[in-house]
Design a protein around this nucleic acid. Structure first.
Lengths: 236, 236
DNA sequence: CCAAAAGTGTTCTTACTACACCCATGG
DNA sequence: CCATGGGTGTAGTAAGAACACTTTTGG
């Protein structure tokens, strides 16, 4: 704050970028937009854009989500992920981006029109195999977002953010199995999810019309953290 | 990326701010500098400053740490904490700051001279009782940094970052007791710390010249995460 | 010898794992 | 009645909590 006059700040732009994850067709997927102009024309990119003068960072993230996506921002859990500011990450100028992580329930394809026209869900593992499909340093940001989502499932009830408002324990278990890429014992998972305080609350109703015994429906509980946490397999 | 020409970016400055924590006189303490000029003249602030054109964010954080502090940056564990960018958080202009968390071993007072002249350690609990002692939104940033440090002690060997290169298990336990503000059973803690793989490694030597039986010295182990984690009391 | 701090052993209880088993529905 | 998935019971095991007890120093 001493060597630089505030009226002589170095030229920097600040953006927000969004890693919005959901589960589609039994695969963890991320919302991407196609880039119509250079740089990185034709590549895919995380949705995002400049922070506007009057808005906070979370407001900018929610606005970009609404603009570039048909998702209802009320259904998407948004939290700050990290910031990325290497010089040269954008060839046009110095850009520092604040990345947000969004977790969304399974939803229909983003509708065309507005900025959301180019937005599409892509399976994360396809992108991970070819990081160069993504523009800028977005592959690294995506990787950090997926890692954050994986660890958050352990100690928070956020898995429910991937489910509709009312869901079965089996749906919740499939979220864990897909995000963690593991198999979980359905019986032990059921007990764990229903007995961990504040994880899920009984919604009263049950499913019907499907194969097998109907399943009770639950809603997300009120706990902010899970005690005890859900455990990933392999933690000997 | 569509509504704004990159050459017409909104006027924003990007800074880094540092929450550097250590343990002094059995109290968790944070490194603060006195502000000599308005705004917030006379208040305390986190060390920090503008990100310069050619440098990365971690480089900017390390540079500010060296400039405003006499600490050896090699001894301080630095990691990104979060970003803060509410409009109005700095009355002069729009400033988005990327906060870094630093954990330092107990060290002598920052020496005078250079920018570090005004740097002083302050007990965190004194600041927490009077958040208005801090300039800008630095009380909120400090609070987030302390919370991050508390939770990182659970599942990483970072408590060792508060200790000298060689330390006793009792020193390590005092770190936990001070940061978590709890009492831990010395006997169970000893067993846990020495048996958790990769947490500490025997340094061979022992203490001498103090009351009681000499203690073996340990170094920080190579594990990145602790399996099983250290547990805070109260997690029923 | 006594105080103080380091370090070990033992018991109790909690919580995870694995898997046998029963329940409720569609076809 | 059988296939399919939902849900419960139980035994074995790993790990945390509490605390008795031994070890090794300084005074």
């Amino acid at each position: 704050m001493r060597h630089y006059d505030p009226r002589a700040w170095p030229p920097v732009a600040v953006t927000v970028d969004l890693v919005v994850l959901t589960i589609r067709d039994s695969a963890l997927s991320v919302l991407l937009v196609g880039r119509g102009e250079p740089p990185y024309q034709g590549r895919l990119a995380l949705p995002g854009g400049f922070v506007r003068p009057g808005e906070t960072l979370p407001q900018a993230a929610a606005r970009e989500l609404a603009e570039e996506t048909s998702l209802d921002p009320g259904l998407v859990h948004l939290e700050q992920l990290a910031s990325y500011g290497d010089p040269g990450r954008d060839p046009r100028m110095r850009v520092v981006t604040v990345a947000y992580l969004g977790l969304a329930p399974g939803l229909p394809e983003p509708v065309a029109g507005t900025d959301a026209a180019a937005a599409r869900w892509q399976a994360v593992d396809k992108i991970s195999k070819r990081p160069s499909l993504l523009a800028f340093d977005h592959a690294a940001i995506l990787s950090d977002g997926v890692e954050r989502a994986r660890s958050k499932l352990e100690y928070t009830p956020l898995a429910a953010a991937f489910c509709p408002a009312e869901f079965t324990i089996a749906q919740l278990r499939r979220v864990y199995e897909i995000v963690w890429d593991t198999k979980l014992d359905p019986r032990n998972f059921h007990r764990k999810a229903t007995t961990t305080p504040g994880f899920v609350v009984d919604a009263g109703a049950s499913t019907a019309g499907e194969r097998g015994r109907p399943a009770r429906l639950y809603r997300k509980g009120s706990a902010a953290v899970l005690h005890p946490p859900m455990l990933r397999a392999g933690a000997s």
